[in-house]
């Protein structure tokens, strides 16, 4: 059992790290809009995509990982 708990904890840590990478990736996508698109509308779409990716990383991955084993369930 202790081993299982430990590996579960490690998996949550990994998901958090992946979530951070995804959140940063969203920022990079927004930044790339400056080089990838030349029109205002094109840049707007790419920036919104980047924002969506960052939010996915924070809400979908990082927060979800923290909710796997929260203090109120221990």
């Amino acid at each position: 059992m202790p081993n299982i708990k430990y590996s579960s904890h490690e998996r949550e840590k990994s998901v958090i790290l992946v979530g951070i990478v995804v959140a940063v990736l969203g920022f990079v996508i927004s930044l790339l809009s400056l080089g990838m698109a030349s029109t205002i509308n094109g840049r707007l779409v790419v920036v919104l995509l980047g924002l969506g990716v960052s939010l996915l990383g924070i809400i979908g991955l990082i927060n979800r990982a923290y909710l796997k084993n929260p203090i109120w369930k221990r």
Binding site: A23, S30, L31, N41, L51, I58
Partner: peptide, 21 residues
């Protein structure tokens, strides 16, 4: 000026993606 909104959203993306991280 729609370009101003895009500039602001790039700032927001930097806040959420880079500053939070």
């Amino acid at each position: 000026d729609a370009g101003q909104l895009v500039a602001q959203l790039i700032g927001v993306s930097t806040l959420i993606g880079a500053v939070f991280s």
